[in-house]
Write a protein that binds this DNA or RNA. Structure first.
Lengths: 214, 214
DNA sequence: GATGCTTGGATAGTGGCACTTTCCAAGGAG
DNA sequence: CTCCTTGGAAAGTGCCACTATCCAAGCATC
């Protein structure tokens, strides 16, 4: 298919597709002559994935480029490929180590991992972006003065571990390594808004159960 | 305290505080004379909340204004105040009702609520933004061709319901209605990044358990 | 009482980002 | 032969969260 058809089938304007090509989010088609390139279903699929990441997952274009580079890197083993792709996702600022709330949040977080027995995660403490963003979030809550207990944090963590088990079980059902990395990324990017929506709906449901609709 | 001190204690520049004042995110201080206003701890607290919403929660300034307006609206009862504040948060585009994936996602989502027995949520189907964004997220996943089962969605939903129970239990520990609304908003805005971080950490942990670090 | 700093308030400017628009020369279709 | 489409480059747009610059009015100090 040519550009126009790719645009029509994906619902993305030709101008935007050209932009994605320029930004390296999409491989060029097979050049037929000076003015024509041929795209295939793989391009369409990749384009849809890019769109989903940007529109549903709100991932910046530059980040999408990094993530895809890792997903496509056949030189990496499974764990590295998957990890590299996931680790290029977060958009969290480095926590300010001089801030007292950040420091106490760090202590609290390490304590949490110990309580949970997440030994693998503890080994990643210095490098994992997920750990850093957790510290930032906890510090922000503490700074506002809410005194929710560590037990609450543990309870949330156990729930998210159950979610992670579901994620990985689903990933296992797909054979190829490239597909696994792709699913891991989509799981991080698209399942997140879904979980968020479910969370809010659940809050509305539970709130209705407890208080009715005054 | 005056502007300079408010700035120093919050870590937000005076220029930015002035910007927030202009945008209606922060009430003016008590005007002492033509060139001086006095701010109190309530201003500091509100400023920190605004910052947390914008920086940690990535909520747009215009949305923060709407949310705060509802949080401060004493004419509303508990459920309405809380709901109004939460419903002004989402930044989800209206799902395109002509899209086949959106339509089937709608069917799937309604089926989900029935399976779960979330009767309150079902009553809100037409108006809740959480429902709409859930439909968008499910449609995006389906469009990419992943065939994960409705059972998986149900499993995720049950987990998020448990999270909602934790949220509301914590909210109950705070007495005033204004505080409850505030906590509900922060729960939606700040607990979300925390859950997301926990989710990714849990994925890393579980991935390490299953595959080791090749 | 002159001098230099700070304050609140208004207005304009900045930088980043995700596109869009415009232009162009080279093909291909009727 | 004429008109439309294509890929490619470059410039422009609109939004957003600030940030910088002015300004006149205090206040503090000498």
């Amino acid at each position: 298919m040519r550009l126009a058809e790719l645009s029509e089938r994906s619902g993305v304007s030709t101008a935007t597709i050209k932009y994605y090509l320029r930004e390296g989010l999409l491989a060029s088609g097979r050049q037929i002559n000076a003015t024509t390139s041929e795209y295939d279903d793989e391009h369409l699929r990749r384009l849809r994935m890019v769109r989903a990441m940007i529109q549903v997952g709100r991932v910046p274009v530059a980040t999408v480029r990094k993530v895809l580079r890792h997903v496509d890197d056949e030189s990496l083993g499974r764990t590295m490929r998957l990890g590299a792709a996931l680790w290029s996702l977060p958009q969290v600022p480095e926590p300010d180590a001089d801030d007292e709330f950040v420091r106490s949040a760090q202590g609290e977080t390490e304590q949490l991992l110990e309580t949970l027995g997440w030994s693998n995660a503890r080994a990643l403490v210095t490098i994992s972006p997920a750990y850093r963003s957790l510290v930032v979030a906890v510090a922000a809550l503490r700074r506002l003065g809410y005194d929710w207990s560590p037990e609450l944090l543990v309870a949330y963590a156990r729930l998210m571990h159950q979610a992670a088990v579901l994620d990985l079980d689903f990933m296992e059902t797909h054979p190829s390594e490239a597909e696994k990395a792709e699913i891991a990324v989509l799981g991080a990017v698209l399942v997140q808004p879904m979980l968020q929506s479910l969370h809010r709906l659940a809050q509305e449901e539970e709130s209705g159960r407890r208080y009715g609709f005054e």
